[in-house]
């Protein structure tokens, strides 16, 4: 049980490092996916430990939300790249449409 929780904490922390240390928006979105996966492992481990299937259903909800998040996030990224030619979060200082 605890070994799975520690693996989940490790994946979550690596994902958090990716979110904090990268400026490429694609990599930031991928790191968010990694964090969600870390949480999923913990949920499934708890479901197995408690012999309760609620955790599995919760993981499926997380997958649905992750799919929606990636869809909208990548659409925003494409819209940003079309108007400003950047994928760099550090360059992203305005949300207004460029003239």
């Amino acid at each position: 049980m605890t070994k799975y929780l520690i693996l989940s904490a490790l994946l979550f922390s690596i994902g958090a490092y990716g979110v904090l240390s990268r400026r490429n928006l694609l990599l930031i979105l991928m790191s968010v996916e990694l964090m969600l996966n870390g949480v999923n492992i913990a949920l499934v481990a708890f479901a197995r430990h408690q012999q309760n299937l609620d955790g599995h259903v919760f993981v499926m909800m997380v997958m649905g939300v992750a799919a929606a998040e990636v869809g909208v996030g990548l659409a925003l990224l494409i819209a940003l790249f079309r108007s400003r030619r950047i994928v760099d979060a550090g360059e992203l200082t305005t949300l207004k449409e460029s003239p």
Binding site: L10, F12, S13, I14, A16, L20, R23, V87
Partner: peptide, 29 residues
Amino acid sequence: ELGEEHSPPAKALAGVVCGLLFLFLAASF
């Protein structure tokens, strides 16, 4: 167009923060 990345000190700081996060989580587990 890939853009720039954070400076090495900033990355090291992020690494330390996330290492502490992992240690905190693992210790509580």
